[in-house]
Nucleic acid binder design. Structure first.
Length: 711
RNA sequence: GGCCCUGUAGCUCAGUGGAUAGAGCGACAGCCUCCGGAGCUGUAGGUCGUAGGUUCGAUCCCUACCAGGGUCACCA
């Protein structure tokens, strides 16, 4: 008989999402739920668990429902293992005082699992492992079919805020980590079935923008009109379609100059204060200059991010938070709930402060630290933390006030980015509904954990439901420069820097790797490779491919490290296309593409509706083939785990491992598809190649990386 | 000083309450009569920071200590 290639077996579909209710942020309300408990949660695991739990209750009169499952280290040990007999032996001893051999316990449990759908063998191994062997052929048939089913959709709209770069200078590699991390989390969440709104918060009224304005006014002595006339090809960079304006580069240098300017004469800091004041007033030439500079740089940033495939839905501006008095609403609520208190005496006299939850009010005369968090300064202005509380209350729909919105730009694919406005006349009534999400995730570097903690305390004081509990500061470590990289950028290093092996980037000093510089270097390197390998392609195709490779290398480089690992930026490593890199994974896809092209040229049908009846017997003998396929099929679980943990590195690591296994498969002389004499075996190799390619492309898509047809 | 993070191969990093702790880079030795060498195979390289504790079992959990980093603004 032929094995028809059917849809996914129902038991798989039924179980695919069961674990969402166990330990993820979608339900669990503790921030520690962000820690994932296991990466590979197999599709039939839950069914087996239930059966085991029932058997345990039946045979030993014990209620044991939470026990570990694991994937054995070697294929011959089976496909899924339960070390539950060890735990049971302990429990039984405690309950009855009698010692029981884990192997005996496992044997009894094994009986209960015999005959389960999809499981062909149950064995006891080692000191008492319960090892399950799946029906391989069944899996292959399911895998071969492209699953067109829509993903389930969970809960409400999630709001992910990322990028949020100060609009006063060019974005650097550190900003890229934020944006790429955030963008990838968005992609993973969407692939995991969530609805996501992407926000990019624009601090256009802060010190950083003010400093550049000081630079234009007091160092360069330029008027608004003169600044507007600054050409787009600043700093000897010719504007291109991908990067139409290098104004942000010019500001990068100017910002560093302003730092010096203040150094030379501290009294010049008065210029900053005056500028800040003018900006907040919302009128006048200085305000207009600041608005122009911030807006023009914001366009530069969006162009830079678009090169990496990063897009946004809406960009709330700090100036609008101020001018619409959104803070006032939050302020009233905070006072009403007693979340903040007015200090009438002491160091913080005249301020509204928030106390950390665990500390009762105590005079901290002897301690220079641990002051309460100031929300409103004694001069009546709001701190960043206060503004952020207001912003987050708006994100969760807790303030009965909304921004006005106007169109900012339209991406080439038609998607539109909106920006807030405080001018009601500018409000475009056709805007989508923004804010009022079911939870938010803020991609902000780990250095801001302390103020973020107070933001959460403030929001919690006003909103008690699970939405706040599920929301989180999505923290990540910084990108530092290796001493070698810092030297390449012309930085003098202290002995300490050398010893520590890392140098912090500094916008104020102008020390850092600019995002566009890196992209351009990567593209140039990739282009020379592509041109030498594929001289037959026309220039446009070569450039498109080179771009895909460059972005693959860059995104993967910033995603392969887990969030709380500091990335030491090294040019050689970041510019590499070999080893554990994005291009390595892209190359595996390209090889698979090449095989399918050759199959077509040879007139071999690679889309068969049926496969040979000898497939089960072939598969039973070939552990390597099964192992590769089994690994490829874990993607759904990896995506879900990454979504639960908000950790893109899980997907990056898995994709690399799959590519690695595919390359080993590809290089094995036994697996030469075009020359395989046994048609049944060839069909199997074709199926495996197809599944691996599909899964790799899907994983790369989640990482925001495109796979070229050839490279 | 308080709180948080980190310590795994020469370097950069994964990883797990369980079966032989992994990868990339670097080093060394191989592989193009073979679907693409951005590749593959092999070798060398580890007291998983130290010391206790819990456990049948700890690199993983707990405690202390050591080392490094971050943070504790009327900055954002």
């Amino acid at each position: 008989m032929d094995y028809a290639i059917k849809g996914r077996a129902s038991f798989i579909k039924a179980q695919a999402n069961c674990y969402h209710h166990e330990f993820d942020w979608r339900v669990n309300d503790s921030p520690s739920a962000l820690d994932t408990e296991t990466i590979f949660i197999m599709v039939i695991q839950q069914a087996v668990r239930e059966k085991l739990a029932a058997a345990i209750k039946d045979l030993f009169a014990l209620d044991l429902t939470a026990f570990a499952a694991e994937i054995p280290p070697r294929t011959e040990l089976g496909d899924l293992a339960f070390p539950v007999a060890f735990e049971l032996a302990k429990r039984l001893k405690a309950a009855t005082g009698q010692k029981q051999n884990p192997r005996d316990i496992a044997a009894k449990l094994a009986e209960a699992l015999r005959g389960m759908a999809g499981i062909v063998r149950v064995e006891i191994a080692g000191a008492g492992y319960l090892n399950l062997y799946f029906d391989r052929a069944n899996y292959v048939l399911e895998a071969a079919r492209e699953d067109e089913d829509a993903h389930p959709v969970y809960g409400g709209k999630l709001i992910v805020e990322h990028t949020s770069v100060n609009p006063n200078k060019a974005a650097h590699i550190g900003h890229l980590r934020n944006a790429i991390l955030g963008d990838t989390v968005v992609r993973i969440l969407r692939q995991a079935g969530e609805t996501v709104e992407v926000q990019n918060y624009i601090d256009n009224t802060g010190v950083q923008v003010a400093d550049v304005v000081v630079g234009f006014k007091h160092i360069e002595k330029l008027t608004l009109d003169e600044v507007k006339r600054i050409p787009k090809n600043a700093n000897n960079h010719a504007a291109t379609e991908a990067k139409p304006d290098y104004f942000d580069y010019l500001c990068w240098d100017l910002y560093a100059k302003v730092g010096q300017f203040y150094e030379e004469d501290k009294s010049r800091l008065a210029m900053r204060a005056a500028t800040l004041h003018d900006i907040e007033s919302g009128t006048g030439e200085t305000y207009e200059l600041a608005d122009y500079v911030a807006t023009r740089i914001l366009h530069c940033h969006l162009d830079t991010m678009l090169r990496l495939g990063i897009k946004y839905d809406v960009m709330p501006r700090e100036s609008d938070v101020l001018h619409l008095h959104i803070w006032d609403k939050a302020f009233a609520l905070l006072k009403e709930r007693g979340a903040i208190a007015f200090e009438s005496e002491g160091r913080l006299a005249g301020c509204w402060v928030m106390r950390s939850a665990d500390e009762p009010a105590k005079d901290e005369a002897e301690s220079e630290h641990e002051a309460d968090k100031v929300i409103v300064r004694s001069n009546g202005t709001v701190t960043y933390t206060g503004k952020d509380i207001a912003y987050h209350l708006w994100k969760l729909g807790q303030l009965d006030i909304d921004f006005g919105y106007k169109k900012f730009t339209t991406y080439p694919d038609g998607h539109m980015v909106w920006i807030t406005t405080a001018n009601r006349a500018e409000n475009d009534a056709t805007h989508p509904a923004f804010g009022n999400g079911a939870a938010y995730f803020n991609v902000i570097d780990i250095g801001q954990s302390y103020p973020q903690r107070y933001v959460k305390i403030g929001v919690t004081a006003i909103l008690h439901d699970g939405r706040v509990e599920r929301s989180a500061h999505l923290a990540y470590e910084k990108v530092a420069l290796t001493p070698a990289a810092a030297k390449q950028l012309g930085q003098q290093l202290s002995e300490e820097d050398e010893k520590r092996g890392a140098v912090s980037m500094s916008g104020r000093k102008g020390l850092g790797v600019k995002a566009d510089d890196l992209i351009e270097q990567l593209e140039a390197n990739a282009l020379s490779e592509v041109a030498s390998r594929h001289p037959e392609l026309d220039e446009t195709e070569q450039k498109v491919t080179a771009h895909q490779i460059a972005i693959g290398a860059l995104r993967y480089f910033l995603l392969k490290y887990s969030r709380n690992s500091i990335i030491s930026f090294d040019f050689k490593e970041a510019l590499s296309f070999d080893g554990e890199t994005g291009p390595y994974i892209q190359y595996a896809v390209v090889r698979a593409n090449s095989i399918f092209r050759k199959l077509e040229e040879a007139g071999i049908d690679s889309q068969k509706e049926t496969v040979d009846e000898r497939l089960p017997e072939i598969l039973a003998k070939e552990d390597e083939l099964w192992g590769l396929l089994y690994f490829a099929l874990r993607m759904e679980d990896v995506i879900q785990s990454a979504a639960n943990a908000l950790e893109p590195a899980f997907v990056a690591k898995w994709a690399f491992q799959l590519a690695q296994q595919f390359n080993a498969f590809y290089n094995n002389d036994r697996n030469r598809i075009l020359e395989e004499p046994d048609i049944a075996r060839r069909d199997l190799l074709v199926i495996i190649t197809g599944v691996v390619r599909r899964q790799l492309i899907s994983a790369l898509t989640a990482l925001g990386i495109e796979a070229p047809e050839r490279m």
